[in-house]
Amino acid sequence: MAVIKTNDLTYTYPGATKPSIEKVSLTINKGDFVILTGPSGCGKTTLCRCFNGLVPHFYNGKLEGTLTVAGLDVAEHQIYELARHVGLVFQNPENQLFALSVEKDVAFGLENFAMPREEMRKRVEWALKMAGISELAERPPHELSGGQQQRVAIASVLAMQPDIMILDEPTSFLDPLGAEKIFEVINDLNKKLGITTILVEHRLDLAAKYANHVIVMDNGKVALTGSPREIFSSEEARLIGVGIPKATKLYQHLKKNGVELKSVPVTTEEAANLLREVLKNA
């Protein structure tokens, strides 16, 4: 079932000479784990801003075409209505955090929903625990490290338990183990609670294994869409400059030299298993 559907969506920022996204038509189904990728400046962040109504309601500018999110026509519904369904974790956590304590920041969205106090407390505790920052509850967000701030931003969106969660490079400041933990958390929420997840990410090495749908944007348009395996093994993706996971790259290099593995690996486990077979038979 489609939870996000766009048709010929075109958007131009106020004062800009050309649209940031152009004739974008795509469907995202309920429960999908989508990776949205493409060269820097291709319109990924702008598209995400459309999904929660920041475009056009906050940024103004000119929006053409149609966009439905969780059954709501975005042009007709305000940000606060969309916020009940769509949570957005910003690329730069500093743009999102503002309260004097982590706890208050995480509670902010819930306060606006007028959630009863006890329930709110439980929800905040749960979100902090999921993001692995329970011990930071009392700390001021602006004194935390970039990675810690990123976890706070994620917790504050988690707390709202949205139908759709959009994360714009949510682990860019985190160390690899920390990033993996966050991806596990996101994946858990996606698989167990069925939250539709849209992850904007360049580092496909880390994220590929969780996704079932990859959308590649280029120059404001949707250039490719498909399963991770289809996208990573396509010549077009390489030309656009999508960062192919090393496991897939190794496959390609071997193939060029006359050794073809049985299928295209996306993860290191898959690559190791495929190589194991070839090495055994050698």
Partner: peptide, 21 residues
């Protein structure tokens, strides 16, 4: 690496898996 919260590069991960060869 684990002590520093880093994971090995993908290529290394693959080769570590295949150490028995």
């Amino acid at each position: 690496l684990l002590q520093a919260s880093i994971v090995p590069p993908q290529i290394t991960q693959i080769f570590l898996e295949l150490a028995d060869f």
